[in-house]
Design a protein around this nucleic acid. Structure first.
Length: 377
RNA sequence: GGUGGGGUGGCCGAGUGGCUAAUGGCAGCAGACUGUAAAUCUGCCGGGCUACGCCCUACGUAGGUUCGAAUCCUACCCCCACCA
């Protein structure tokens, strides 16, 4: 039910096939984020046509609204959201980080003050797993503690150890729930440890000591640390990660992050930037970023990205997309979101092909040169 | 024709003697965004410079009062409301 086969590799870069209850996924692959059970602004068919193979949901947000009981009653997250392919739910661990101003952390778990109505909400490793089980995604994530990229060794150590303890509890609860239905959902652990090599390795060791996981996630990156540091962490980790399991770099990234991640053995990515930046009028192209609201596009008859096959690029001009943004028509936000998702999906698809014919690194070098040439990325 | 109100930077609109190149908002321009508290946020926005400072031009027009005026006075032009 949960499998991963390596279809090919090219000096560290990997191409694989991940099997999940709702379908298979060809990697490397970007996963669009649908925090509240919807990829912001988009119809599931649009997300699918952009090439998405799997999307995310979020434990904290779906727990607050509509509540996992509602989702479970309505047949689970897939049916509820009209998405019949694989899904993954984040544990709420990221909200411990992003909502740090309105939560209190203790050893047992985290107490939030709801960002919606101020009410008290509590997440523990056990409750996060219970919520995720009720939501019913193919992959559940362990409840982790991530910290800013500048965190000290001491703080990173503390958070890493807590993540270990919480992983133990997450796994136990998940085992209990999955005992009666082992093919329903798998649980993935998350490597923490900040920017510190010894902690990253210790984190991974602690994870591998605690079970035989069907996938391993790397978290706590792209949270304020310089990009070269993230690259170094990935390089530190690569030799120690199980070769026959998918590797998921959480919360990353931008196009160049996908290239760098893939080059260092990452198989899966997720990031809100494709849709958020899309809504904000920033589009990715092979030649770097394009500010869709910019005056330069006023009468530009060309497509956003000449090499892209998305619904925005094959049908509309840059001038029209700019007009939609200037006029604040929602269609603009949707089209650029679609484009950005498609752009990252295409990146994964092309990288996969290049890995399989073992020309990935040369291709990546060309890609970087072109992407950064104009200095807009 | 009379009475009253008003004319401020691309637009709307504060400001009623110095701290005003002039609050705000809009429009315009540029930028940010990485497991989504984000259809959000930030910066610029009269002109010119040997620019973290200086110089010019500016609050309907023309004069005047004053050390100093968008702010006070006079005349004129225009707009609005009401009365004839």
């Amino acid at each position: 039910m949960f499998g991963f086969t390596l279809d090919g590799s090219d000096d560290g870069a990997r191409a694989g096939t991940l099997t999940l209850p709702h379908g298979t996924i060809q990697t490397p692959c970007f996963m669009p984020v649908g925090t509240r059970g919807a990829v912001r602004g988009l119809h599931p068919d649009e997300v699918r046509r952009a090439g998405a193979q799997i999307i995310l949901g979020n434990t904290y947000h779906l727990h607050l609204r509509p509540g996992e009981d509602v989702v479970a009653t309505m047949g689970g997250l897939n049916r509820f959201a009209g998405w019949d392919r694989p899904m993954l739910t984040d544990s709420g661990g990221f909200q411990v980080f992003s909502l740090s101003a309105m939560r209190r952390l203790d050893e047992d778990g985290v107490s939030f003050q709801s960002h919606i109505d101020g009410s008290a909400r509590r997440l523990t490793p056990e409750s996060s797993i219970e919520i995720q089980w009720a939501l019913g995604a193919d992959v559940a994530m362990a409840f982790d503690h991530l910290i800013p990229g500048q965190a000290s060794h001491a703080d990173a150590l503390d958070a890493m150890r807590r993540t270990h303890r919480w992983l133990e509890r997450s796994r136990q609860r998940h085992d209990e729930l999955a005992a009666g239905d082992p093919g329903r959902q798998t649980l993935w652990p998350i490597v923490q440890g900040g920017t510190h090599t010894d902690l990253r390795e210790a984190s991974l060791r602690g994870i591998l000591d605690r079970g035989d996981w069907s996938g391993v996630a790397i978290g706590g990156l792209s949270v304020g640390e310089p990009k070269p540091v993230m690259h170094r962490v990935l390089e530190d980790l690569a030799p120690h990660l199980p070769g026959d399991r998918p590797r998921y770099l959480m919360g990353v990234g931008f196009p160049d992050d996908l290239i760098e991640g893939i080059a260092r053995g990452i198989d899966l990515f997720d990031c809100v930037a494709a849709t958020r930046n899309g809504r904000h009028g920033s589009a990715w192209t092979a030649d770097g970023k394009v500010n869709v609201r910019g005056a330069a596009l006023r009468v530009d008859p060309g497509p956003l990205d000449a090499d892209c096959d998305c619904e925005a690029c094959t049908r509309f001009t840059r001038a029209y997309l700019r007009h939609l943004f200037v006029a604040e028509e929602q269609l603009g936000q949707r089209l650029v979101s679609i484009h950005n998702i498609r752009f990252l999906m295409q990146l994964g698809e092309t990288a996969r092909a290049r890995i399989l014919d073992r020309t990935f690194h040369a291709w990546a070098a060309d890609w970087r040169r072109r992407y950064f040439a104009k200095g807009t990325a």
